[in-house]
Simulated assay, not measured.
Amino acid sequence: MSFSTEQRAKANSLEYRLFFKDGKGQYISPFHDIPLYADEGNSIFNMVVEVPRWTNAKMEIATKDPLNPIKQDVKKGKLRYVANVFPHKGYIWNYGAIPQTWENPSHIDDNTGFGGDNDPIDVCDIGSKVCERGEVIKVKVLGTLALIDEGETDWKIMVINVEDSEASLFNDIEDVRRLKPNYLESTVDWFRRYKVPDGKPENQFAFDAEFKNKDFAIDVIKCTHYQWKALVTKKTDGGEINCTNTTVEGSPFICKTGEAKAIVDAAPPCGSASPTPVDVDKWYYYQKN
């Protein structure tokens, strides 16, 4: 199954949106219409890349927009960029989400004691390739880290692109620890400190910041997929979450091809990228707590 994207408005602008199409060129939602599995029999999942490695723009699936295009996160009317907290430059993995998952804020996670963060589950691809924004890659799950972000459960699933030249060497979280020394520790450090330059305290973790293994991570994904199913079939109230989709069988939110096209056509046309703020490349240094 292949997917493509279509940009609307200028990159680095409040209006920027990246819409998704299926192999037939029809508009879809990356949140709802891209399948959870690329190969269920072999536990291979789809991952939507929101943020390519080494970049700073905080891009995300727009869960409240119809068809859920990728957009840049906004805070106090300004586009958000993650700070470079030494020694990290931007995101240190390809960062994104697993489609057809939802961390339900009303569902108290048995493992963490907190509700979800109201988004699809987050994914960190440790492969060598620097992916493109909007790329849909096939990944195998290696483990997970449980971030507690301002009182919400925010799982981080560690994966590797199945097309990576070293993918066969990585089958569980201990393989990452053995073959990529300090990468897991750097991942914890990144998530712990990335909001500090914005004046926020260090983030906290469940399990004393220890990674859980592949089987544990897949169980977490399955739980969030179950929550998504309830959301998209209106068995759970998703509040402001937009469930417009074009393919989900049994969903009352399904729309026709023409309606989906009208949503995209209503967005501003693609334009040349706006410049990024000069301070995006600034480095931040501070003593670890």
Score class of each variant (00 low, 15 high):
186 S>N: 15
136 V>I: 15
252 P>I: 10
1 M>H: 11
237 D>I: 11
257 T>S: 12
73 D>E: 14
241 I>T: 12
179 L>Y: 13
143 G>L: 05
195 K>M: 08
239 G>C: 12
281 D>N: 14
193 R>N: 14
78 K>Y: 02
281 D>T: 08
159 V>H: 06
52 P>F: 03
150 E>M: 00
125 D>N: 01
68 N>M: 09
19 F>D: 08
94 N>G: 08
203 N>H: 13
99 P>N: 10
270 C>P: 07
214 K>D: 08
161 N>C: 04
123 V>T: 05
134 G>W: 02
11 A>S: 08
168 S>E: 11
140 K>Y: 07
8 R>L: 12
248 V>F: 15
65 D>N: 14
233 T>Q: 09
24 K>S: 15
16 Y>I: 01
74 V>N: 12
144 T>K: 12
132 E>Q: 06
156 K>R: 01
2 S>Q: 11
183 Y>K: 14
53 R>C: 08
276 T>R: 14
99 P>E: 10
216 F>E: 14
93 W>G: 05
200 K>Q: 13
62 A>M: 12
43 S>E: 15
289 N>F: 00
223 C>N: 11
38 A>G: 06
145 L>E: 04
62 A>G: 15
80 R>G: 04
223 C>A: 13
137 I>R: 13
289 N>Q: 04
25 G>E: 04
68 N>F: 10
238 G>K: 09
70 I>T: 12
190 W>L: 14
148 I>V: 03
277 P>R: 04
182 N>M: 14
46 N>Q: 05
35 P>L: 08
69 P>G: 09
157 I>N: 00
53 R>K: 15
263 I>L: 08
75 K>P: 11
192 R>L: 12
56 N>P: 12
236 T>D: 13
157 I>F: 01
12 N>I: 04
179 L>Q: 12
85 V>P: 00
251 S>V: 07
257 T>A: 11
19 F>V: 10
65 D>F: 14
220 V>C: 08
77 G>D: 11
249 E>V: 13
168 S>F: 06
278 V>W: 07
42 N>S: 14
84 N>H: 01
248 V>P: 02
228 W>P: 04
202 E>D: 09
215 D>L: 13
193 R>W: 03
140 K>M: 07
134 G>E: 00
49 V>A: 07
262 A>W: 01
83 A>C: 04
27 Y>V: 03
130 V>E: 11
222 K>T: 10
90 G>W: 00
132 E>Y: 04
193 R>F: 09
41 G>S: 09
138 K>H: 10
128 S>M: 03
3 F>N: 05
131 C>L: 09
195 K>A: 05
232 V>W: 03
188 V>I: 15
22 D>L: 08
6 E>G: 03
14 L>I: 14
51 V>G: 04
32 H>A: 15
171 N>C: 13
106 S>C: 11
54 W>Q: 05
264 V>P: 06
164 D>M: 03
191 F>I: 10
50 E>Q: 10
138 K>T: 02
142 L>A: 03
210 E>P: 07
135 E>I: 00
195 K>I: 07
188 V>N: 10
17 R>I: 02
127 G>I: 04
145 L>D: 02
240 E>M: 12
206 A>P: 03
106 S>N: 15
215 D>P: 10
38 A>L: 05
16 Y>N: 00
193 R>K: 13
279 D>V: 06
233 T>K: 12
7 Q>M: 15
101 T>W: 06
206 A>D: 09
208 D>Q: 11
37 Y>C: 05
209 A>T: 09
164 D>C: 00
145 L>G: 07
82 V>K: 02
35 P>Q: 06
122 D>L: 00
